[in-house]
Design a protein around this nucleic acid. Structure first.
Lengths: 254, 254
DNA sequence: CCCAATTTGTTCGTATGTATC
DNA sequence: AGATACATACGAACAAATTGG
């Protein structure tokens, strides 16, 4: 790997990054807290402005800090959301192969567990959002474009459940799979008219899931979601293809 | 490229990052290919060295490029490994709560699927590595430190399986869970003498898994791994606690 | 509304280290 | 060993954005 493991010269900016991270955990800093400013870092490391800017840039890319200009500005600790992690995961998968079958292999085991984990945790607002989603997806599409939007909206049903999931890692995995699937939908043109029954089957499962959620039947929810995933997998794998790499660097946002 | 002197609300270095990413997907660049060097970027964007250095630093943090000095050096496209993604995922979980129960909630569904997916794919070298691992973990530990190493070595058994898993995302999730568990082991001191039977139970499951792998019985492998996870979960949740944040920013490396 | 202070964002020039030929 | 090519780093300045008087 590294041809020179001995006396490897690490970049100064990387040292600063590590030190700031150590500071964050050592001082138990919370989101919104200040992180040393440029002049302070320049002083304490005796380096130039450009070097500390590289370090701060790295921390910014990792989602750990945000910077503001002006008085009272500077670098502040940010609550690293899921976006940076999802972006890196896309980078990781960029040169690897992941197709619909691969996504559903994971989804078949993750979604039932996630769905069951939110039984009894859904608020009335959650139920309203889920029911609205089902209604919006039930309306017969008047155009191919609307059909495409409906297909993507169906994924929102699962994202709402993920938002309630108390396990942050499980929720992250679920949302990431939904994101990948969203790209697959547009890529495989799963919204074409001949795939209409695909959407109808999905909505039917969502409806049955809502009933099971109302009566808080966890085993029923789990079973329904598994069946839902198996059914969706059949529809999806019928459409051959692979996730285009063009979608894997985080562009299709918006 | 047309320069954008108008309404530059986003940082110029971020624009360069996005453009380089677009270049990577547009030109179908593969790992090892060159990306524009500093002077070229300076020329095409009409900016300074520091700005393009910030941009290249961002791409480096994302694991997309590596830079080398000297003639023929510069920035090269890297095969973004799993490390950056895992690091960001740790950042994401830094301010959230994830405990042993949360890890095993996912592990119980992921590991059986992963284990079953490699049935029939194990080479003789894989079997040797797995058997060596079992033997190393079977030896009665002579010190608490050795017991700790054995406990961590047990996780390697699962990492070997993940290495063979053809689904890169499933393999990533498995490895990430193992990494988190490794931190939990040292944090919860699951290697204490009174937890000795924990290790013995694990090794026993690994042995039975090897037999099932030899005869390529996928359903048996899946069932054994699920039982293994349920058993390990019982041992782990007996030890209260939560993953310390100090372990979540990627330090315990080495 | 403008002015001034503060802090990041950016530029230019220069120098040094390092790897290749 | 020397020349070349390239990243790495320093320092002084200026520009832009934000806050408060």
């Amino acid at each position: 790997m590294a041809p020179r493991p001995l006396r490897r010269r690490t970049k100064l900016s990387d040292v600063i990054v590590e030190d700031v991270k150590r500071l964050i955990v050592a001082e138990r800093l919370k989101p919104g807290d200040r992180v040393p400013r440029e002049p302070e870092l320049i002083e304490s490391y005796g380096c130039s402005k450009g070097t500390v800017r590289e370090a701060l840039k790295a921390l910014e890319v990792e989602g750990l800090i945000v910077t503001r200009t002006g008085p009272g500005g500077g670098a502040y600790l940010a609550d690293a959301g899921s976006d940076p992690a999802a972006r890196m995961l896309r980078n990781f998968l960029h040169f690897r192969h992941i197709d619909g079958a691969g996504v559903y292999q994971i989804r078949k085991v993750v979604e039932p567990e996630l769905a069951a984990s939110v039984v009894g945790l859904l608020s009335e607002e959650n139920f309203s959002a889920l029911e609205e989603n089902v209604i919006a997806c039930s309306r017969p599409p008047e155009s191919e474009e609307e059909q495409r939007r409906q297909r993507i909206l169906e994924l929102e049903f699962h994202n709402i459940l993920a938002d309630v999931c108390p396990n942050p890692l499980l929720a992250f995995i679920g949302r990431f799979l939904n994101d990948m699937l969203r790209d697959l939908v547009v890529l495989k043109q799963a919204y074409k008219p001949e795939r209409h029954q695909f959407g109808e089957a999905n909505v039917a499962y969502h409806r049955r899931l809502l009933v099971a959620y109302r009566v808080q039947d966890a085993t029923q929810v789990r079973a329904l979601m598994l069946e839902h995933m198996r059914d969706a997998e059949r529809h999806m794998t019928a459409l051959e293809g692979e996730v285009a790499n063009s979608f894997l660097l985080g562009f299709p946002r918006g």
